[in-house]
Design a protein around this nucleic acid. Structure first.
Lengths: 228, 228
DNA sequence: TCCAGTAATGAATAGCATTCATTATTCGTG
DNA sequence: CACGAATAATGAATGCTATTCATTACTGGA
């Protein structure tokens, strides 16, 4: 009896308990993935019984959702603080691409977890990672639409398709990072994607400039013919 | 006894049995996905016991592999027959994009199965869908590399990144097709992707060069008139 | 007709998420 | 301080998987 009394520890607050569970879940899911990461492992890591998890979370999926929610919250905070300070549609697009690449390369475990989760659709509602990733896609599309309206980008561009190409490309890069393990050169990849996309959708100034110089030469020739 | 003798049916050949199992697996996996599609369901559909499947296939994963192998074989046959007949790097790239979109839109069940499978990486070796999709990516990269070498495409383009963007974009389109169910307008999407990519990587040197030669001819004509 | 050899079976096993009756702890009130 | 309802935690039990393997059924040649 006295031993029990001596070793007895006051129960943590509801908030603390949730934090502990989510942190253990993050560790286990990042290490083993969602399917292979078991509730038993998470409970063991958190030092509690499996049943306790179900008091606080609506099953395994709900637990994953909370892990993802917390991960994305930091990224969105960052974006919300940085994006308005950047000038130019192309530059903001470039920042968004870079920010995602940074998130991918800075947390390999989370990258793997999200990369796998993005392709689930058995559940009735879409996975949180999907809708949160989609949010970022919307931010990109907004820049492209605004850029089209102001004439910075070609008007025959389809913002949705371009966003799919950027988002899909980033996903494939994340996936290949997970499988081959080679570190991502964030700046190099940001440049490669931005260059490809922008040269594709930006009204092409280089071409226009060289055409303009040709027109000048034509005009000068015409002048010579006139004066002759 | 006589009843048994009357209803007795000769055992199908090894090949027939394999075909039956693979076809049942395709049906069940396409309908329920790989995780949810159970061996019991497949065995029931094929009219055999679960254990029999393990005589012919190395577990559930091996069964999926055979389903995918058969699906991709038709696509690769088609590509091998068509690609060499197309003129121009841009046009061949465009064909490959279109062929993938066709595969996606023409078999929704298989599209869902593949889309989900592309993001697995728990297994020691990559999934078959991954390596087969990668094959198509290599075909695209080959066209881009050859186009760069011949000067059709800009030399500062990264073929790998561009392929990731095309492949990733196609994947996202497949994914959104699975979730929203709206039919894909193959030609419209092919155009949107091709336009975005090609305007981005095609060099405008050809157009500029032909204009420049025209101007030069005009200038020479003016010279002749001058000296006359 | 018989008998290796081959094929098919489905009960048994092990691993998983989830549930819930039971046990432990907390905290407001007398 | 003591009590006892309310709240929290437990872990064995449930039901669902894929996979295995001892047992049973079939086949084709001698």
């Amino acid at each position: 009896m006295s031993i029990v009394a001596l070793t007895k520890v006051p129960r943590p607050s509801k908030e603390q308990r949730i934090d502990t569970i989510v942190e253990s879940a993050r560790k286990v899911f990042c290490a083993c993935g969602f399917e292979k990461g078991s509730i038993v492992d998470i409970a063991a890591d958190a030092g509690i019984a499996e049943g306790t998890i179900y008091r606080y979370f609506d099953g395994k999926r709900g637990l994953l959702d909370e892990v993802l929610r917390r991960h994305y919250a930091a990224i969105f905070d960052d974006i919300q603080q940085t994006l308005p300070a950047i000038e130019g549609y192309g530059n903001r697009l470039r920042y968004l691409i870079r920010r995602v690449l940074l998130a991918i390369s800075s947390d390999r475990g989370m990258c793997g977890l999200i990369t796998r989760d993005l392709r689930q659709f058995d559940t009735t509602q879409p996975s949180l990672a999907q809708s949160l990733n989609h949010q970022i896609g919307i931010l990109m599309a907004d820049e492209i639409k605004a850029g089209i309206k102001r004439g910075d980008f070609r008007s025959d561009v389809s913002p949705g398709i371009v966003c799919d190409m950027i988002g899909g490309g980033l996903e494939l890069i994340a996936w290949s990072y997970m499988t081959n393990g080679k570190a991502i050169d964030v700046d190099k990849v940001t440049n490669a994607i931005s260059r490809t996309v922008l040269s594709g959708i930006e009204s092409n100034n280089a071409t226009t400039a060289s055409l303009a110089s040709l027109v000048t030469r034509l005009e000068q020739t015409a002048d010579r013919l006139d004066s002759a």
